[in-house]
Deep mutational scan, measured.
Amino acid sequence: MAAGGDHGSPDSYRSPLASRYASPEMCFVFSDRYKFRTWRQLWLWLAEAEQTLGLPITDEQIQEMKSNLENIDFKMAAEEEKRLRHDVMAHVHTFGHCCPKAAGIIHLGATSCYVGDNTDLIILRNALDLLLPKLARVISRLADFAKERASLPTLGFTHFQPAQLTTVGKRCCLWIQDLCMDLQNLKRVRDDLRFRGVKGTTGTQASFLQLFEGDDHKVEQLDKMVTEKAGFKRAFIITGQTYTRKVDIEVLSVLASLGASVHKICTDIRLLANLKEMEEPFEKQQIGSSAMPYKRNPMRSERCCSLARHLMTLVMDPLQTASVQWFERTLDDSANRRICLAEAFLTADTILNTLQNISEGLVVYPKVIERRIRQELPFMATENIIMAMVKAGGSRQDCHEKIRVLSQQAASVVKQEGGDNDLIERIQVDAYFSPIHSQLDHLLDPSSFTGRASQQVQRFLEEEVYPLLKPYESVMKVKAELCL
């Protein structure tokens, strides 16, 4: 049975990233139509530049190519590739079939990587351009969430054990800070992308030097003109047959890092959902379990974690691919890159769409948070109580021993009897502590235990987050809708 299948058929496997999760716009960027249309555009740009620099290419040939950029006979191309065992030459023939007058000058002087690699770089750039505003929107939604809850005390956790208090907004800023680093890295790697350009079979530009009869300047002009037509500021000066596969490492490393950030955020949300302090959106008709109707599973956060793990592992592909590119190139890269580049971007696209949807509907339960604080705060307040007693004339050592005994009794009630923490009640009825009984409410005010959390939130948002989001103001209103 021949390899390949009808990918629109229910009898043929289709990647869930495309069929179930990723956005239509990201799927289109990695589609065959987008790819092969870009090949034709690159052939047109090459012909236009070659004509401008004096090669015998007519206006009629150029116009014929322009008129057929979208006229792609995919069936013919597939048949040609089956016959020739070469995808680029299959599309040269297919393009030439609908451009008979231009057929002889299509791909003039070029090698397969002229269309293959340059198209990949265009796709990487455009895919990054799709991700950047999506990530900015996630940051914006979380920034709104953090600002609104900047002063809401909550129990902090280290080692997932109760620690000092923080605020809900401050905790959210930990998430935002990681995503801001990801946004900066995505922008950097996007701006650092260079075009492969017009380089020939081993990167020496020998074929173009021959076409222009040894004119170095025209060869350099050709490279520059096509690079500018493709919208790049610069091209690699040095290439082998391909652009260095280190570029793929750079791009997928940034995406993998984004995956790590999203995994951490969504894990926190899942843990908070278990504590009943916070939940992701839950639709009115949504079913959490087929057997347990009360369940409210954090399905979206779980999906993000599941896909983020996949995204983090994909960076190993370009690392290994770059390491086995012998001399000017081997074909070890080809099949692998067809999979890992598309999957990385479709996965990143999915987790950003999902995280935006989550961040637009996060639900906080202040009463649950308050109750958990009441359970733990008495123990945390013991040092403040000791200091207040010393100020009232008591002995630190005597007070410490009193607190120690009462704390152990209260802990026994919590752990052995399943009761509430009654340390404060014990202190309130103990005559030894009568000098500070009137101060206990103040000493137990949760806001006095959150330090500068709310001020940190305000400063972080104003100095770091809002300036970073400013270039994306025009796209901030787009909502994230999930079908599944």
Rank of each mutant, 00 (worst) to 15 (best):
Ala3Ser: 14
His7Ser: 12
Ser9Thr: 13
Ser9Asn: 15
Tyr13Phe: 10
Tyr13Ser: 12
Ser19Met: 05
Phe30Asn: 05
Asp32Ala: 14
Arg33Leu: 12
Lys35Gly: 03
Thr38Gln: 07
Trp45Tyr: 14
Gln51Glu: 04
Pro56Glu: 12
Thr58Val: 10
Asp59His: 11
Gln61Arg: 04
Ile62Ala: 03
Glu70Ser: 11
Asp73Cys: 08
Lys82Ser: 10
Val92Tyr: 07
His93Ile: 12
Ala102Ile: 08
Ala103Pro: 06
Gly104Asn: 10
Leu108Arg: 01
Cys113Lys: 00
Asn118His: 07
Thr119Glu: 07
Leu121Ile: 08
Ile122Gly: 02
Leu124Gln: 11
Leu124Ser: 11
Pro133Asp: 09
Ala146Leu: 04
Lys147Trp: 12
Glu148Trp: 08
Pro153Ser: 05
Phe157Leu: 08
Thr158Pro: 01
Gln161Ala: 03
Gln164Lys: 00
Lys170Asp: 01
Gln177Phe: 09
Arg188Trp: 02
Arg190Trp: 08
Asp192Pro: 00
Arg196Cys: 12
Gly200Trp: 00
Thr202Ala: 10
Thr204Ile: 01
Leu209Gly: 08
Leu209Met: 07
Gln210Cys: 06
Val219Arg: 01
Val226Arg: 02
Thr227His: 12
Glu228Gln: 15
Ala230Ser: 14
Phe236Glu: 01
Ile237Lys: 10
Gly240Gln: 05
Asp248Cys: 06
Glu250Leu: 10
Ser253Glu: 07
Ser257Ala: 07
Ala260Thr: 02
His263Ala: 10
Lys264Arg: 12
Met278Asn: 02
Glu280Met: 09
Phe282Asp: 06
Gly288Trp: 01
Ser289Pro: 01
Lys295Phe: 03
Cys304Gly: 13
Cys304Phe: 00
Cys305Lys: 09
Ser306Asp: 02
Thr313Gln: 09
Leu314Trp: 03
Asp317Asn: 10
Pro318Ser: 09
Thr321Gly: 09
Ala322Val: 15
Ser323Gln: 07
Trp326Tyr: 09
Glu328His: 00
Thr330Ala: 13
Asp333Cys: 05
Glu343Gly: 12
Phe345Thr: 12
Ala348Thr: 13
Asn353Cys: 13
Thr354Ala: 15
Ile358Thr: 15
Tyr365Phe: 10
Glu370Met: 15
Phe379Trp: 07
Ile385Thr: 03
Gly393Asp: 08
Ser395Glu: 05
Val405Glu: 11
Ser412Arg: 13
Gly418Leu: 04
Leu423Glu: 06
Arg426Leu: 05
Ile427Phe: 10
Asp430Gly: 04
Phe433His: 07
Ile436Gly: 05
Ile436Gln: 06
Ile436Phe: 04
His442Pro: 08
Pro446Cys: 03
Pro446Ser: 07
Ser447Cys: 15
Glu462Trp: 12
Glu464Ser: 06
Pro471Phe: 15
